[in-house]
């Protein structure tokens, strides 16, 4: 099975991943991951494991941590999902736009919706929130509730 051999390759290069990577089903590999060596694993996956596209970045609010799934795709349809966790207090990531230019928009989404800080993100318009969006409001965090209607009036009741 191709997934197995990929996994073995990954684990032999990074022994700390032993037991952290699972094959969930055919063509889906999930790799849970400590923060420190993440970018080396990422680099290795892109350069040696034949990951040719970045499908998306998914942010998840996990209470004290924010998780980000880097969704790497191979030409034969195998997805390697690298999961990295950063503390909510200081959510700092490094940009991967040098590997995949289209990561820029995905990273901007994380910045706007989760309040991540992405180092090395090129200048540009924000996405997807409007320019006059108030500071410090990150809609996809679990503790965020919408309390304004479309016309900007404050809504009292908790919908």
């Amino acid at each position: 099975m191709k997934e197995k051999s990929l996994l073995q390759e990954l684990e032999s290069k990074f022994p700390q991943l032993e037991g952290k990577a699972v094959i969930q089903r055919a063509r889906r590999i999930f790799v849970d991951h400590p923060h420190d060596s993440f970018y080396e694993v990422f680099d290795f996956s892109v350069k040696n494991l034949g990951c040719t596209m970045l499908c998306t970045l998914t942010g998840i609010d996990e209470d004290v941590m924010l998780a980000v799934i880097y969704n790497l795709g191979r030409d034969d349809g195998i997805l390697i999902n690298l999961i990295v966790r950063v503390p909510k207090e200081a959510p700092i990531l490094k940009s991967v736009s040098s590997y995949f230019p289209n990561a820029v928009l995905y990273e901007r989404e994380l910045v706007d919706l989760f309040g991540m800080k992405v180092e090395g993100l090129p200048e540009g318009y924000r996405y997807p929130l409007p320019d006059n969006w108030p500071e410090g409001q990150f809609p996809l965090r679990k503790d965020w509730k919408q309390n304004h209607d479309n016309a900007g009036k404050e809504v009292q009741s908790d919908v």
């Binding site: 929130l129 409007p130 969006w133 479309n150």
Partner: peptide
């Protein structure tokens, strides 16, 4: 591609009107 409606407080930008207004 985009997936959300704007939340506004009285910030800069054009005035928004509600339907009765």
């Amino acid at each position: 591609t985009d997936r959300m409606i704007s939340l506004r407080t009285d910030g800069p930008g054009e005035k928004l009107m509600s339907w009765p207004e």
